[in-house]
Design a protein around this nucleic acid. Structure first.
Length: 558
RNA sequence: GCUCUGUUGGAGAAGUGGCUUAACUCAUUGCCCUCUCAAGGCAACAUUCACCGGUUCGAAUCCGGUACAGAGUACCA
């Protein structure tokens, strides 16, 4: 009997299927020419990282554009780092960002005939392949302990040699099979390694869809393919899964580029056709003058949670990420004003090679653009939904009077050049809280209402009294309303012609701007607000009068 | 240390041997408009493409070296 077969049967007695059986079980996909099968393969070790969102955006976009399939595979082979519940949350967040897989692990269910889509459920598949590799002599059990390997690395480092388990240092690769069999029978712990036939003296040519033709050092490491816990390592799972799931374009972070030769060698050794690869740049951040990867621990923007809880419209993050992915997307937006990602043709070759610095300013720019284009119904509903989850104070505000909330958000909206005050829903409340009667009372008591220095108490009082006794809100048109402001201002001595005022400022107590500032500060507590006419309209005659009286009262009693 | 991969303004970048006086977008600054602000309009912002050498009539673009940065170097992914 073949010795290899004996060893294989000893390690995997329960496996009687072959690779051929698997091929039949997972036949090629029936897709049109050029259709791309891509995937997102997250590990359930935490919440969705911004970089992962970026990768999956690209993967799903490519699949969609080409009429292919985008699926999700859960890489849960690292049982030590696994965080309970994070896999399901990952899917929910992906969905919130509008990334909807066609197939795969979907959190609560699995869709598709190429499953299971969860690596921990695919043990038999890996074992089937490894069994055959052992029979063919391209995989073997290795009994080296952690200490053995540490010692080896030390020695290699001292000799300035390449570290790792390869060539003459791969001490168990040529172990006599009978010995291996007896070790296993004794219960010695072991892993399964791939027997590499490469040499680091050789170079291989590979093609990357983003980076073009590359020359990499051939792999010669006998890497671990099956850990002692019986689960596969990433490298091996990648080969099996992407082969049997018929991925034809692997998109992943550039940190995988150095291990590409390992993957290529294994695909070849197994006689599998290797997929195409696109190694995406990672998103960076400037830290003390150095670029580094966005870190979940240090940077709030590294986690997708941050954008959701701040109330960024998911689309705006997506648009921003797309401008990083394909900078010509910006030109496209400028030309078309179209923020719908579906209409843009993405191109891998237009992707830049080094990681972009995450730019919050630019994100905010797009975020404001997008929010400004919503009509009052849409933005109010979305803000309301966001508030329900993240902002109790906004929710209180909204629920007092929803229609009024809509009108407030509608100030200078629904027109050609709408206001762009808000980048995210969390920006809303601080800007609008003065509308609330109780909140205004609080502001009035606690905050300083500062007027322009040149406005004396007498001027303010005089203007306020005159103005509040005019029919200040009996106007439909803003122009007429402003005419009234001007008329009162003129009467109390303000200049109502800015050119005249500029020419001779000392001849007047102030100009219309100053008059408006009196109203603005009195009504809102702030020197900077949206359109006064709209504010007064929403506050209503009674409340405006009340606030005027509050101020008059205060000034008179000082 | 070793093995890869990169390097064009403050940021994202276009550009692959003459069409470049280095597009476009964000940021910044100034002006205009204007009841403040936001928006909008108009300007300004890289004598130069990390550095040094080479090839060429001609280089950001091709070649060599150096520097710097990032990644990998796990029974993590």
């Amino acid at each position: 009997m073949n010795k290899n077969l004996e060893l294989a049967n000893l390690i995997f007695p329960h496996i009687n299927r072959t690779i051929d059986d698997l091929e039949k079980l997972y036949p090629p996909r029936n897709l049109k020419e050029g259709a791309k099968v891509t995937r997102f393969a997250p590990s359930p070790t935490g919440f969705l990282h911004t970089g992962s969102l970026f990768t999956s955006l690209v993967a799903s976009k490519i699949a969609r554009d080409s009429g292919g399939v985008f699926y999700i595979r859960l890489e849960d082979t690292d049982t030590k780092r696994e965080i309970e519940g994070s896999a399901a949350k990952l899917l929910v967040q992906l969905h919130q960002f509008g990334i909807t897989p066609d197939e795969g692990y979907l959190g609560d269910k699995e869709v598709g005939i190429y499953g299971p889509y969860k690596q921990s459920d695919r043990k038999e598949i890996y074992e089937t392949v490894i069994k055959e590799m052992i029979i063919k002599g391209i995989a073997y059990p290795c009994f080296a302990t952690e200490e053995d390997l540490a010692r080896l690395r030390e020695k290699q480092t001292a000799n300035k040699e390449i570290t790792g388990y390869y060539g003459k240092y791969a001490i168990y690769r040529d172990l006599d099979i009978d010995t291996a069999i007896s070790y296993i029978k004794e219960g010695k712990p072991y892993v399964i390694r791939f027997k590499s036939s490469g040499s680091h003296l050789n170079k291989i040519k590979v093609h990357d869809e983003i980076r073009g033709d590359l020359e990499l050092t051939q792999n010669d490491q006998d890497i671990v393919i099956l850990k002692s816990d019986g689960l596969p390592t990433y490298h091996f799972a990648h080969i099996c899964d992407d082969h049997f799931m018929h991925t034809n374009l692997v998109t992943r972070g550039e940190e995988w580029l150095p291990s590409l030769p390992i993957h290529i060698e294994m695909f070849n050794a197994l006689g599998f056709k290797a997929p195409k690869y696109a190694h995406l740049p990672v998103i960076m951040k400037l830290d003390n003058g150095n670029r580094r990867k966005l870190s979940k621990r240090k940077d709030p923007e590294a986690s997708v949670d941050f954008f959701l809880s701040e109330g960024y419209e998911p689309q705006s993050l997506l648009v921003y990420l797309m401008t990083i992915a394909n900078s010509n997307y910006e030109d496209y937006i400028v030309k078309t004003k179209d923020y719908n990602l579906d209409n843009f043709k993405f191109s891998l070759s237009k992707m830049s090679l080094d990681g972009a610095l995450f730019d919050v300013d630019k994100l905010n720019f797009y975020a404001k653009e997008i929010l400004s284009k919503f009509n009052k119904t849409t933005i109010s509903a979305k803000a309301y939904a966001w508030a329900k989850e993240f902002s109790p104070e906004l929710i209180t505000f909204i629920e007092k009077d929803y229609n009024r909330f809509e009108e407030i958000l509608n100030i200078e909206r629904e027109k050609k050049n709408p206001r762009k005050d808000y980048a995210k829903y969390a920006d809303i409340y601080p800007v609008i809280k003065f509308f609330d009667r109780d909140e205004f009372n609080k502001i009035f008591e606690t905050e300083n209402f500062v007027f322009n220095e040149k406005l004396t108490k007498e001027i303010i009082l005089n203007f306020l009294k005159n103005y509040s006794s005019s029919n200040f809100l009996d106007f439909v048109e803003e122009n007429d309303w402003f005419g009234n402001v001007k008329a009162v201002a003129d009467r109390v001595g303000f200049c109502i012609d800015n050119k005249l005022y500029k020419a001779n400022p000392d001849a007047y107590i102030g100009n219309v701007n100053d008059a408006c500032e009196i109203l603005r500060v009195t009504l809102t507590g702030r020197a900077v607000t949206p359109n006064l006419f709209s504010i007064m309209k929403i506050l209503g005659t009674e409340e405006v009068q009340r606030r005027f009286d509050m101020m008059i009262n205060r000034l008179e009693t000082i």
